[in-house]
Simulated scan of single mutants.
Amino acid sequence: MSKTQRIELRVSLLDKKLIEINAKKSGLSISQYLVDCGLHRVIKPPPSEERLSVYKELAKFHQNFVYISNLIKNNNAPEVTLEVSKVARELLIHLEEIRNGKQSEKHEGE
């Protein structure tokens, strides 16, 4: 959808600085930040370098466990396949938590 409409508003110097700071923290332009705020969209800050690094490592582990699980399935070892599949699912849950920036209900109490 093309953006053709314009909205003008006046704010105090302090409000302007706070909006600029919050937009920068969220990784958005000031315009997009204000649109998202006005439409009550969830504004997530960009992931930290540490979070990205952890995500990439967990993604590698997940892929490796899927690969191992497939190898075991082909060699008919159902008990090991089940355990490896459980670990792969757990890793996937943690990857989703990192991607979405929150814990699942299952892990909040831990």
Rank of each mutant, 00 (worst) to 15 (best):
S2M: 11
R6C: 08
R6N: 08
R6E: 12
E8A: 13
E8G: 10
E8M: 14
E8S: 13
R10Q: 13
V11I: 13
S12V: 10
L13G: 09
L14S: 05
L14G: 04
L14V: 07
K16T: 00
L18A: 07
I19Y: 04
E20Y: 00
I21P: 05
A23M: 02
A23Y: 01
S26G: 02
G27K: 01
G27H: 00
L28H: 03
S29A: 00
I30L: 10
I30E: 08
I30Q: 07
I30C: 05
I30P: 01
I30G: 03
S31G: 06
S31R: 08
S31H: 03
Q32C: 06
Y33V: 00
L34S: 02
L34H: 03
V35F: 06
V35G: 01
V35S: 02
D36V: 00
D36R: 01
C37L: 14
C37P: 05
C37A: 06
G38L: 08
G38S: 08
L39Y: 02
H40N: 11
H40K: 09
H40F: 07
R41K: 11
R41F: 07
I43L: 00
K44W: 04
P45W: 00
P45D: 01
P46Q: 01
P47A: 05
E50R: 05
R51Y: 02
L52H: 04
V54R: 14
Y55E: 06
Y55G: 02
Y55V: 06
K56R: 14
K56W: 04
K56M: 09
E57D: 11
E57K: 13
L58W: 05
K60W: 09
K60Q: 11
K60I: 13
K60G: 08
F61S: 06
Q63E: 15
Y67Q: 14
I68G: 11
I68P: 10
S69G: 15
S69T: 15
S69P: 11
N70L: 12
N70P: 11
K73Q: 15
N74K: 15
N75Y: 07
N76L: 10
N76D: 11
P78Y: 03
E79I: 06
E79Q: 10
E79Y: 08
E79P: 09
L82M: 09
L82H: 12
E83P: 03
E83L: 14
V84W: 04
V84E: 01
S85D: 14
K86I: 13
K86V: 09
V87N: 06
V87R: 02
A88M: 08
A88N: 03
R89Q: 14
R89D: 12
E90C: 03
L92M: 14
I93D: 07
I93H: 10
H94I: 13
L95S: 04
E96D: 12
E97N: 03
I98M: 02
R99S: 11
N100T: 08
G101V: 04
G101Q: 00
K102G: 05
Q103G: 09
Q103F: 12
S104F: 13
K106R: 14
E108K: 15
G109M: 15
E110P: 01
E110R: 15
